[in-house]
Write a protein that binds this DNA or RNA. Structure first.
Length: 700
RNA sequence: GCGCCCGUAGCUCAGCCGGAUAGAGCAACGGAUUUCUAAUCCGUAGGUCGGAGGUUCGAAUCCUCCCGGGCGCGCCA
């Protein structure tokens, strides 16, 4: 799996490319860069040592803000006790701007203490994050749901991860194109077409009428499961499937028209479902256009020319164009540097005599012997288009206008003359589940084989694990489980079997559960207001739920956990912000003013005094980390770190809220300080939740 | 068979660039609020970090092997 290196914030390569935040304020992230750079230079000049990476940890707050165990590492090289080295470094390094001091602790830790007052003032003034000047455009492809049935919880994880990653990139100042690839000519659509035409025996007009109904995708969900059973009944039925698929790919016939009608209607439903979660797309490239605009033909020529594809004249893949499967590079893989003689020998003995020929089991068929191209081939062509390497473009048509005015475009054979420019991006992230990593690697290797290693390196498979149902959840939904399944930790969702939780159903259930709470807590509010708040809470719960697990973890879905609004949940964090807002509302004060004007509201001496309290300081410190955490999320393609951070900050705030009554505080300057604290945390929490796509209700 | 992922408290998960007492949430039990305060807070209990070796001053974290579970390896997409 594509696990990038850990955060690059203190890599040697990053020290010159990430400038200090000249226009904005110096926050936690910037201080870390500064510290790492200072240490690095000091070690070089004083010891002649060039450390590859300076490890910087985050210690308990009473020990400082940054902790460096580097003296332990240097002990070997310098043949001195770690404690001694640490002491030398601390006494010789001099002062670092923004830091109060360095200290030696334990057996040789070097702990750095920041200038708390300076960091707090910088944080308070940081009302909009400084925007990095971005180079090229970034493309994030996510969702990509087959347009033949309702979206389910697995698709929700994909879309929420993808949308959050888009927001993370935008926070960091990148320009992002959001694409949702639509496989509108594949077997899955064909199956539903077969269902309408051959099982339900519906006319085109009848289908058209059904497609206009509110939850047409639910109808397709059931039909798709029925068709799958129908295929099992006879070989004759399966032939219908092939015939139908063929007609759809061909285009310009009645079957293709029906398929277009169905897939477009389901696609609209998907967009509506995702819009409920504030997830929007810019462009919907469809497979039909990749076929009809002959993207493959252009790609095929270049791939042959570059020698990525070879034609098989014998064996099981006779008559096919094949490429080497990713990860099987017998010739290309150099023995590991540490590899011993025996290992090298073992490799050379398994390599084919003819180094050009790929052994049969390492072949991936790209073009079938009947001349048709498979999914991976089309994906290669598509990715050549993404990076501007294909020499062809889609036509573009307006497709969907969001209530907020945003326009979503779709691919077309003959597009509108005026349209925005998609493609030609500098970097691509594909949010696709882990089961497709081999196919994704094939695309990457094809780009490399074409001589475009620079793009291969900038194509990231944003891989995550699936959402499955716990046996208990499946039983609650009324599914019959085999004895085998009952013993499993989780059971995979299956559209083909109609087994799963639909996205809209889950959202409805969440809204209903939230509504019940809101009704009992705020009967004085208007119905429309209670509804709006319930939706915000439901979205908060759902998005947080999908983001709190790290990507490699399979989510074993359970209604009890997903419908929870307490503990480590989105509503917990939303509630913390609401509480902060309550203070200002009841006090008749403007929280933003308390951020902006902290320096005039609280004197530097007083600020320093109050921040000397570790509990209060910990809250400020955590609030100062938003940009730092977001950098980490992007570098590691892991949004879960932001979810963890939001929860931690909300938790610290709730403790603070409980411990310090603010409005009744008698000491005026202390009161102003506490208000500034609440205001800053409120702003940072709101900001971080916003990056997760979670809004905060006015009351809860 | 080959490849990738997972295995940490009763349950669900963090931690894994080696480092200072292994953390949360849920569940359980016991407490707190006429207040900006209960979608909350505080406390108690709960762990041979799947197992065995190895590297190291130091391993949940790195390496090897094993066990258990998941996923992928198609002229499907």
């Amino acid at each position: 799996m594509a696990n990038d290196a850990r955060p690059t914030t203190n890599d040697a390569s990053a020290k010159l490319t990430i400038p200090f935040n000249h226009l904005g304020e110096v926050l936690y992230r910037d201080l870390e860069h500064r510290l790492a750079q200072h240490i690095r230079e000091f070690l070089r000049s004083s010891y002649g040592v060039d450390l590859e990476k300076i490890v910087i940890e985050q210690p308990r707050v009473e020990l400082g803000e940054y902790a460096m165990p580097l003296a332990f590492e240097l002990a070997k090289k310098l043949r001195k006790a770690p404690r001694k080295i640490a002491e030398e470094i601390v006494s010789d390094i001099g002062s670092i701007d923004g830091f109060a001091k360095l200290e030696v602790a334990g057996a040789g830790y070097i702990n750095a203490r920041v200038d708390r007052t300076a960091l707090a003032v910088a944080l308070a003034k940081n009302d909009k994050p400084a925007v990095e000047s971005s180079s090229g455009k970034v493309l994030v492809e996510h969702s990509s749901i087959n347009p033949n049935k309702a979206a389910h919880i697995g698709h929700l994880r994909n879309a929420i991860l993808g949308d959050t990653f888009v927001r993370l990139l935008q926070f960091a100042g990148r320009t992002v194109d959001v694409q949702n690839y639509i496989d509108n000519t594949g077997v899955q659509v064909a199956d539903v077409v077969v269902g309408f035409l051959h099982l339900d025996k519906k006319s085109r007009a009848q289908i058209e009428e059904l497609a206009g109904k509110p939850r047409f995708d639910y109808y397709c969900w059931d039909l798709y499961a029925k068709v799958s059973q129908w295929y099992e009944q006879s070989a004759e039925n399966k032939k219908v499937r092939l015939q139908t698929l063929h007609e759809i790919e061909e285009g310009r016939n009645e079957t293709a028209a029906v398929a277009e009608l169905i897939s477009t209607a389901v696609l609209r439903r998907h967009l509506e479902t995702m819009d409920r979660l504030d997830i929007e797309y810019d462009f919907l490239p469809r497979e039909s256009e990749i076929l009809h605009l002959h993207f493959w033909d252009a790609a095929f020529e270049k791939l042959k020319e570059a020698g990525v594809l070879s034609f098989e004249t014998e064996g099981k893949n006779k008559g096919c164009w094949v490429m080497r499967r990713a990860g099987t590079s017998g010739v290309a893989r150099a023995p590991s540097p540490a590899g011993n003689e025996a290992e090298t020998g073992a490799i050379s003995s398994t390599v084919d005599q003819d180094p050009e020929r790929v052994s049969e089991e390492d072949q991936k068929v790209i073009v079938r012997s009947n001349g048709t191209v498979g999914y991976v081939g089309k994906d290669i062509a598509f990715h050549m288009w993404k990076f501007g390497l294909l020499g062809r473009d889609f036509g573009y048509r307006k497709f969907y206008s969001y209530p907020n005015g945003h326009q979503c475009w779709i691919s077309a054979e003959h597009g509108e003359p005026e349209h925005p420019h998609f493609g030609d991006v500098e970097r691509t992230y594909n949010v696709i589940d882990a089961r497709q990593s081999e196919a994704q690697n094939a695309v990457i290797e094809a780009l490399r084989g074409l001589g475009h290693g620079e793009y291969a390196d900038k194509l990231t498979h944003f891989s995550y694990e699936m959402v499955a149902l716990t046996p208990r959840c499946a039983a609650e939904l009324g599914y019959e489980l085999s004895e085998d399944d009952k013993g499993r930790a989780y059971i995979e969702v299956s559209g083909r079997r109609g087994f799963g939780v639909k996205a809209d159903d889950l959202l409805d259930a969440l809204i209903a559960a939230a509504k019940q709470e809101v009704n009992s807590r705020h009967p004085e509010l208007a119905e429309s207001e209670r509804q709006k708040i319930s939706e915000q809470i439901a979205i908060g719960a759902l998005r947080y739920f999908m983001l709190k697990y790290t990507k490699p973890s399979v989510i074993a879905f359970d209604f009890k956990d997903a419908l929870s609004f307490e503990g480590e949940t989105g509503p917990y964090a939303q509630y913390a912000v609401v509480r902060a807002s309550n203070i200002f509302r009841k006090g008749g004060l403007d929280p933003n003013a308390f951020c902006r004007d902290v320096a005039s509201n609280v004197s530097a001496e007083e600020l320093t005094k109050f921040l000397g309290d570790n509990d209060l300081w910990e809250l400020w410190l955590s609030a100062s980390k938003t940009a730092y955490i977001i950098d980490q999320c992007i570098a590691t393609t892991e949004p879960a770190y932001l979810a963890k951070h939001v929860f931690q900050l909300a938790q610290l705030f709730n403790t603070f809220y409980h411990r310090y009554p603010i409005l009744s505080e008698a000491d005026e300057s202390r009161k102003r300080f506490l208000l500034a604290t609440a205001a800053v945390v409120r702003r940072e929490l709101t900001r971080a939740l916003g990056v997760m796509g979670i809004q905060v209700p006015p009351v809860m």
